[in-house]
Design a binder for these strands. Sequence first.
DNA 1: GCCAACGTTGGC
DNA 2: GCCAACGTTGGC
Length: 132
Amino acid sequence: MQYWLLKSEPHCWSWANQIEANTTSWDGVRNYQAQSYLKEMHIEDLCFFYHSHECKIVGIVSVVKAFYLDSHDMRFGNIDVQTIRTLKRSIGLKEIKSFDHLSHLALVRQSRLSCMPIDKKAWDFILGLEAQ
DNA sequence: GCCAACGTTGGC
DNA sequence: GCCAACGTTGGC
């Protein structure tokens, strides 16, 4: 089981859209590094759903279909994700940045990356913030 | 809305 | 294959 973070521009695809759709193809990733992470994802992996611009994690989705080529553009591929749940409270980038032991995250180091791994330790810690 | 930090393109 | 110019993303 691996953990990830997926960024979405809320004006394009918001958490509300995700809840309504329940299952959706995660397409439109056009960055080489992000694509390579998509390829590494497996069914049942969990992903934070992050709103860019608002800069906060709002929910959790799971991978329900592994990497497959996009039918319209064979140079790139997608995965499918399913809504798991909304976080009890959203967790902002500012808060994440306030912890030194989270400074290694690509979320902090590579702001432009839209799809990235989250190690289990960081995943558990961030989820723990939810209850506070 | 601005701009830093990338990624991409194309002329050489 | 280098790199200048340009385009894009996302945090602020």
